[in-house]
Structure formats: C-alpha cells, structure tokens
C-alpha cells in the first residue's frame, strides 16, 4: 500500500490513482482513480463481487498481503464501520466506544458520542443486550468519537430491517452534517445511495464506471421526480431494467 503522503490539501480528503488489486490471477481493481473532497459524502455502488469491499479495505489499510499497485492518499485520522457492528462482546458499550482512545476526557467524549446516537443511559450494557440497530449505532459512535476526517463504511446497514435502516439513514445524515467527515459509503442499495450521498460512484470492471453528482435538496424523498431519474439512470448502469418503485 502506498504511503500516507500527507500531501492532501484542505479541500481534498482522499486521492486514489491507478489503484490495482488482484487475488491470485483474478484482477479485481484495475487502474482505479477516485478523489473525495473534505466533507463530501460519496456512495459507492456496484454489483456483488465488483470490488467495493476491496477498494474500501485498500483505503482503510486493511489489505495487507493483497497484491496490487497504485497511489492511495487518505487522512491519518479515518474510521471504519463494518457490515457487522463488530463490538467486542466482553466490553461494555462505553468501553467499546472509547476503545483505543487515551486521555482523561475519553469517557466523557464516549458518553457524548453515545448520546448523539440516542443511546444515552446504555453505557453499562453488554453488546449482546442490544438490538442489531442499536449495536450498529454503537459502532457509529465508536467511528465518530475520534472526529475522523474520513469515514469508511462497508454496507453498514445491510443486515438491518427496512424500518431500522430508514432511521439509520436519518441518523447518519445528521451526524455527518454535524461532524463533516468525508464519507465513502459502500452499498448495493441504489435508493440508499441517492438518499444519502452528494455523489454516487459506480464500480464496474475494476474502475469507476459512473461518477454522478446528486443535486437534490435535503431532506430527500423517493417521490421527487429527480430522485427517480437518478435512480433509474443508476439502475440502468447496473444493468437492471428499472421498474416502478
């Protein structure tokens, strides 16, 4: 993986150039370029197996041992949210949030982060005592408590039921408006991408096939005609014939 050059300007959070990744003989990413501005919310769409997770793991520096090339420039201070909440079952909720933080104010910041995701009062609970949605909110708190410049999320809501997912969309939007991290959200859900993102990037054949700015006012609704237009165009790029949703 390329060094963190630290040459990022104030307005650019992520720069990826000519990124290639392969598992054995199978090339997954091939000459991929991507830039994300500071504070920009980018959704990454792509068919299953198109390499979304591979790209995210490359940005997170979690792909040791994977052969590849290219330049990856990301902020030192970045956080990852996984599809599973990935809380340590043997640590209470608050300890999970402040995991790895040092300093005397760690606990206070952890409590504040939990309050932000609506879990004030659950600090002393065990992760197994929380519902799936609550666990994922703890994971969000853990990711944001360090005030990251970049938030990397790999289908964070994929395992949640539809209603909980809608609530989580609202929460994520709120948190991002408050903390302004750059976000790369991997998803296979076109609606989720159009609802949340400033820009949608579509991965195909190992590179960025579509790069679409979503110019819609917030809050967004599925009933807006432009929403449906974005949705249809993305679905078509994914090779799906759109139906009335």
């Amino acid at each position: 993986m390329a060094a963190h050059a630290g040459g990022l300007t104030a307005t650019r959070a992520v720069r990826v150039q000519g990124l290639a990744r392969a598992f054995g003989t199978r090339t997954v990413l091939n000459g991929l370029d991507l830039e994300i501005r500071a504070g920009e919310f980018v959704a990454l769409l792509g068919r299953s197996g198109s390499g979304k997770s591979t790209l995210l793991r490359a940005l997170a520096g979690l792909d040791r041992g994977v052969s590849g090339a290219g330049l990856v420039d990301v902020p030192e201070n970045s956080s990852v949210v996984f599809q599973d909440a990935r809380l340590l079952p043997w640590q209470r909720v608050l300890d999970n949030v402040v995991l790895g933080m040092s300093g005397s104010d760690a606990d206070a910041r952890g409590r504040a982060a939990l309050a932000e995701v609506g879990l004030a009062g659950r600090e002393r609970a065990w992760p197994s005592e929380l519902s799936g949605g609550e666990q994922q909110r703890v994971a969000l708190a853990r990711a944001l408590v360090s005030e990251p410049h970049l938030l990397l999320a790999d289908e964070p809501f994929g395992a949640l039921d539809a209603l909980t997912r809608l609530r989580m969309h609202e929460l994520l939007r709120e948190l991002c408006d408050r903390h302004h991290p750059a976000v790369l959200l991997v998803t296979h859900d076109v609606d989720e991408a159009v609802t949340l993102a400033d820009r949608v990037v579509l991965l195909d054949d190992g590179r960025v096939a579509v790069d679409l700015a979503i110019d819609l006012p917030n809050p967004r609704s599925h009933r807006q005609p432009q929403f449906l237009a974005y949705r249809e165009s993305l679905l078509r790029s994914l090779g799906v014939t759109p139906t009335e949703g």
Binding site: G61, L62, F82, D84, R86, L99, G100
Partner: peptide, 10 residues
C-alpha cells in the same frame, strides 16, 4: 474480525 477491528482502530 476482532483483530481486523484492532488494526482499523490502530
């Protein structure tokens, strides 16, 4: 996965 979490949290 917990090892990976540890790496992600540095």
């Amino acid at each position: 996965r917990y090892v990976e979490l540890g790496e992600a949290l540095r």
